[in-house]
């Protein structure tokens, strides 16, 4: 038996849910950032699955894979900038715990 589109979408949704749960429940800003990466990857999995299951001229729809390529590139740039911000934040406050970073809270 072969896995169907529903299998891939369900697994991708569960991975997204794990990432979302991490963002909501964890308090370490670096771990939250890793969970954001998990959510981006979950979206990539569903895009690749849609690309494989929607044939164009007998081959996968490569537009979806090009889209995933762009997402991975932007995510890499985002990680670089985000980690630089975290390092700057750590220099200023000596903490990576989100509950200690509340000066913007009213």
């Amino acid at each position: 038996m072969e896995p169907t589109l529903a299998h891939y979408l369900a697994v991708s949704g569960l991975l997204f849910a794990i990432g979302l749960g991490g963002v909501l429940l964890r308090r370490n800003i670096i771990v939250i950032f890793m969970c954001l990466e998990l959510m981006l990857s979950a979206a990539n999995l569903s895009l690749v699955a849609f690309s494989r299951f929607h044939l164009v001229n007998g081959l996968p729809d490569y537009n979806g894979q090009v889209f995933v390529f762009f997402i991975i590139t932007v995510a890499a740039a985002e990680v670089a900038v985000g980690l630089a911000i975290i390092v700057a934040l750590y220099r200023a406050r000596q903490t990576t715990h989100v509950e200690d970073l509340n000066s913007l809270k009213f």
Binding site: M1, E2, P3, T4, L5, A6, L9, R52, F53, L55, N57, G58, L59
Partner: peptide, 12 residues
């Protein structure tokens, strides 16, 4: 039910 089909085979 459209999500429950197996991977379509390549024609090329």
């Amino acid at each position: 039910a459209e999500y429950l089909h197996a991977k379509p085979a390549f024609t090329v």
